[in-house]
Design a protein around this nucleic acid. Structure first.
Lengths: 159, 159
DNA sequence: TATTCATTCATACTTTTGGGTGATTTTTCA
DNA sequence: TGAAAAATCACCCAAAAGTATGAATGAATA
């Protein structure tokens, strides 16, 4: 309420409305002096004044007071399954010490390729792939390719 | 404005406010008859009535006008990592024809266990695990355990 | 320049895996 | 109850995977 009054005072149009009220009062005063108002029933006169000024008050309030705004916040939950998540953990790769080439081999391993197939894919010999594999197992501290794939996926160093 | 009036009529509290206005009017009437109001300056009397009813009007308007409702949608993003998701696709399991026991073996396979380790875990012989493995490969139409794991994860029949 | 590291390859050997076949025992289900 | 499916196990053989060791080469680096 205090705030509303403060707004009312601050408002640029306040003068206009104040003037309107003054004019109304003056017009009543004029009616009072120039017509024989008292011939009419005084309570009717007062009643009409009350009505007019009530309407004026309502009009004033509606014009001046900034409308109340109730803000309703509705939380809409958006489920994101995984937006191409599973970002490869570069940190873990470096921590494990796995080289680029070994990572390639590991990736193909995870796809289910045999050493022979990996060798053909990378244009190297079977022995090379075996060496890479062994090094991978050492670095991941596992014994088998299946374990390597399992651990690599856990560490997010592949896929 | 029309809408506001309609609200005003509908409002349950309207009677209260109407009563308040009636009481005010009656009190003025009472003042009029029981005191010699006319001894005072009539314009002061009218002015106070105007002021009172202006305030009443303002108060009425402030009380009765329903606030505007602004609805704000807040989109709350919920990321689902993959512990909760990745529900096992029962349909694909049945489609592949993989039995319960074979599924067990497949699961341990995916964890990187060797046939020997699986055998010990399941309290069966190595040969049994081999048989299960072979059947799994047939049913998944793959050649190696690594491929089996890869395909099984694609089909969501494990994990 | 010397050294380290990644990559490549080889040979020999062991272990694991996978294919094929057959058989017995449970379990399930019509 | 009786047939089908699932689970169990064995033996043999071959392929693939993995271990160990050694070595050559090229690129990066201290």
């Amino acid at each position: 309420m205090i705030k509303s009054l403060a707004q009312l005072v601050r408002n640029k149009e306040t003068l206009l409305y104040a003037t309107a009220m003054a004019v109304l009062l003056l017009s009543f005063k004029w009616l009072e002096t120039h017509f024989i108002v008292y011939n009419y029933r005084l309570d009717i006169f007062i009643g009409s004044i009350a009505t007019v000024f009530t309407v004026l008050g309502i009009w004033l309030a509606l014009k001046l007071v900034k409308p109340k705004v109730e803000v309703h916040l509705i939380e809409k939950e958006i489920f994101i399954t995984h937006p191409a998540q599973s970002k490869i953990n570069q940190v873990e790769i470096e921590k494990s010490g796995i080289s680029k080439r070994e990572l390639e081999v590991l990736g193909l391993m995870a796809q289910g390729l045999s050493n022979e197939e990996i060798a053909k894919r990378l244009f190297v010999s079977l022995n090379t792939v075996k060496t890479h594999s062994s090094n991978i197992f050492l670095k991941l501290e596992v014994k088998r390719r299946t374990q390597a794939v399992s651990k690599a996926k856990q560490l997010n160093i592949i896929e």
